[in-house]
């Protein structure tokens, strides 16, 4: 079996996996980081979104072996101890979720979307979240949360 080495949430990890192992299964089953969710299993819903080398990707649509040497950040890697990342805090403050299943992917997508940008409009946020599907909320509070999270990150509270 091929050996995969990567850095996940700042920690070097290494494991022998089947070549067909998707990144999401490597994260969930091998590393037991179950915050990343498998929603649709067809690369449409975005619940499995993580950051690979700083960019949001769908971890159900990449093989672990393709990402040998990559830097990966999952939802577990955002908070600093008990202090939530400003985007996580914004989702909580704005009630940007109902069942919460899509939330890890939404938060990871949102952080990538707003990084380095200021004053994203509502329509830019909606277009930027096209790769993430929520079946509960109708997106209204998610968009509000992303806006608030972006402002908090801009204000220097974020990373």
């Amino acid at each position: 079996m091929p050996t995969v080495k990567m850095t996940v949430n700042g920690k070097a990890v290494s494991a022998d996996v089947e070549a067909r192992t998707l990144l999401v299964h490597f994260l969930r089953d091998t590393l037991e980081l179950t915050g990343t969710h498998v929603g649709c299993d067809t690369a449409q819903c975005g619940a499995c979104t993580v950051h690979v080398n700083g960019k949001a990707v769908k971890s159900c649509n990449a093989l672990a072996v393709q990402l040998d040497g990559a830097q990966v950040t999952t939802i577990e890697g955002l908070a600093n101890g008990d202090t939530l990342h400003p985007m996580q805090e914004a989702f909580r403050d704005n009630h940007g979720l109902q069942c919460g299943f899509c939330t890890p992917g939404m938060v990871m997508s949102a952080i990538d979307l707003v990084q380095g940008k200021s004053n994203l409009s509502e329509s830019e946020i909606r277009a930027g979240l096209e790769g993430n599907i929520c079946r509960c909320t109708g997106y209204h509070n998610i968009v509000k949360a992303v806006k608030a999270g972006a402002d908090a990150m801009q204000a220097g509270k974020g990373r």
């Binding site: 690369a43 975005g46 979104t49 690979v52 960019k55 949001a56 990707v57 769908k58 649509n61 990449a62 997508s109 990538d112 979307l113 930027g128 096209e130 790769g131 993430n132």
Partner: peptide, 9 residues
């Protein structure tokens, strides 16, 4: 093309 995550890969 596609969505943001797809455009990254």
């Amino acid at each position: 093309i596609g969505d943001r995550q797809v455009r990254a890969r």
